[in-house]
């Protein structure tokens, strides 16, 4: 699939996949497997957090690309709220960019399973953007 963002090894190891969306940030999926399970019968919070971070990064790269930029980014922090136990099934996450500035981005991401209205976890992150290292900048 063209325009598909390449995912980091950690995300690939957990079988995450990113799917481009029309006019929205990519949706990243993570299938259930033993390697993402936490306490019996539920997803591990760390695996859900990983999915949220990957979705946030995919959203920023997507937004930068639409600006014609491939500037590298660096994550500064993350706050994750866990709202529901993750069931042993396919999990989705999508990032939302609140502000994409010159030097930083304010991003959030939310994760859901069978019902998009029932969010299982959400995260807020800050990223530094290295515009000076943008190879596409004029």
């Amino acid at each position: 699939m063209t325009g598909m963002p390449s995912l980091p090894p950690y995300a690939l190891a957990l079988d995450m996949q990113a799917e481009m969306q029309d006019g929205e940030a990519p949706v990243v999926t993570m299938p259930f497997a033993s390697k993402v399970q936490g306490r019996p019968g539920f997803l591990h919070g760390g695996a859900i957090s990983g999915l949220l971070e990957i979705a946030a990064v995919a959203a920023i790269h997507d937004a930068l690309r639409k600006q014609g930029s491939d500037a590298p980014i660096k994550q500064v922090n993350v706050t994750i709220d866990f709202m529901r136990g993750g069931k042993p099934e396919l999990t989705y996450a999508q990032g939302t960019i609140t502000r994409l500035g010159r030097t930083m981005a304010n991003v959030s991401a939310h994760a859901w399973q069978d019902d998009p209205d029932r969010i299982i976890a959400q995260a807020h992150m800050h990223y530094l953007i290295s515009r000076s290292r943008d190879r596409k900048a004029v």
Binding site: P8, Y10, A13, A47, E53
Partner: peptide, 18 residues
């Protein structure tokens, strides 16, 4: 398979969260 970037080899932040 725990890294964020295959070129630098730095660990994925998510593994640190876990």
């Amino acid at each position: 398979d725990l890294v964020a970037d295959p070129d630098s080899g730095i660990i994925a932040s998510s593994a640190v969260i876990s």
